[in-house]
């Protein structure tokens, strides 16, 4: 069922990870991604994997749910791994027949690539799983605030993002309902060639677009009724404040990055 797609979904909870400042979490995810791209050896990957596992354990998000989020990019992952496997030149040949040669370097590259993509996705998903869309965009707005000086509409961008995130589950639910309703009228989405299947989407897409526009219209009216007029002079009810936990988290993140860099310079 579509409802089971967990993209950008927030799992409410009250763990240390949930309570961290959204800015901290966003920065740490960026640090983590940088570290991932600096990692070159088994040791550094092991360190990063351990850090990710620890974060997942703290968040109490069920690993099964997290792994499910990898499903949509499985093809990309496999493709990257396969390409790396066959196209990496190396000296240590493992298998060789016809035009295919697999080297030890190729195998290593493939494994690293696979791990890198998987860990990247899992890390970022952990952020959206443990941070509500509102606090996530709140944090982003705050982080990007310096850009306001060069006339980037930071508040508007974050509001748009917030609304988009907020409506993903709603639209999924709506799509589910429309699919059911058209199925009840005998619509068939599972058989036929590509063109027939594409055509079968019309009964879903038309009502979905119409209801999205209707929703957008209603939301705009509701926002105006509550005197929303953009970010100018708007204050926050809940100001973001760094707490002790954030300092600890930053220290851990910094340490992780430092370890990765040291391992890289050591050639490990």
């Amino acid at each position: 069922m579509l409802k089971d797609i967990t993209l950008g979904q927030y799992f409410p909870g009250d763990t240390a990870l949930h309570r961290l400042d959204p800015r901290t979490k966003t920065i740490l995810v960026i640090v983590y991604i940088v570290a991932l791209f600096l990692a070159v050896s088994y040791v550094s990957y092991a360190v990063l994997l351990a850090a990710l596992a620890a974060a997942i354990a703290v968040s109490k998000v069920r690993p099964k749910v997290l792994l499910k989020s990898l499903k949509p990019i499985l093809i990309l992952m496999v493709l990257t791994a396969v390409l790396n496997l066959f196209y990496t030149r190396g000296t240590d040949v493992l298998v060789s027949f016809w035009i295919i040669t697999i080297t030890r370097e190729g195998l290593e590259n493939a494994v690293f690539m696979l791990l890198r993509i998987a860990m990247l996705i899992l890390g970022t998903f952990l952020l959206t799983y443990t941070t509500s869309p509102i606090s996530l965009t709140d944090g982003l707005e705050r982080l990007l605030r310096p850009l306001k000086k060069i006339r980037v509409p930071v508040h508007e961008l974050s509001m748009m993002m917030c609304i988009a995130l907020r409506f993903i589950p709603t639209l999924l639910e709506e799509t589910d309902k429309i699919i059911s309703a058209q199925k009840a009228r005998g619509a068939d989405f599972e058989t036929g060639n590509l063109i027939r299947r594409a055509k079968a989407l019309i009964p879903i897409l038309v009502p979905l677009f119409i209801s999205s526009f209707r929703r957008a219209d209603e939301l705009a009216t509701a926002m105006e009724c509550r005197c929303y007029h953009g970010g100018e002079g708007r204050t926050k009810m809940k100001e973001l404040r760094y707490a002790r936990a954030d300092a600890i988290a930053f220290a851990l993140g910094g340490a992780l990055l430092a370890v990765t860099i040291v391992l890289r310079t050591m050639g490990l």
Binding site: Q182, A184, R185, G186, A187, V206
Partner: peptide, 25 residues
Amino acid sequence: LVFQYPEYQLFEETVFADIAFGPKN
């Protein structure tokens, strides 16, 4: 099966074509 608020599932260009969707299937 007629869902709640079924009017949100209409999609065809004419009412006739929309009613015909089921029988056509």
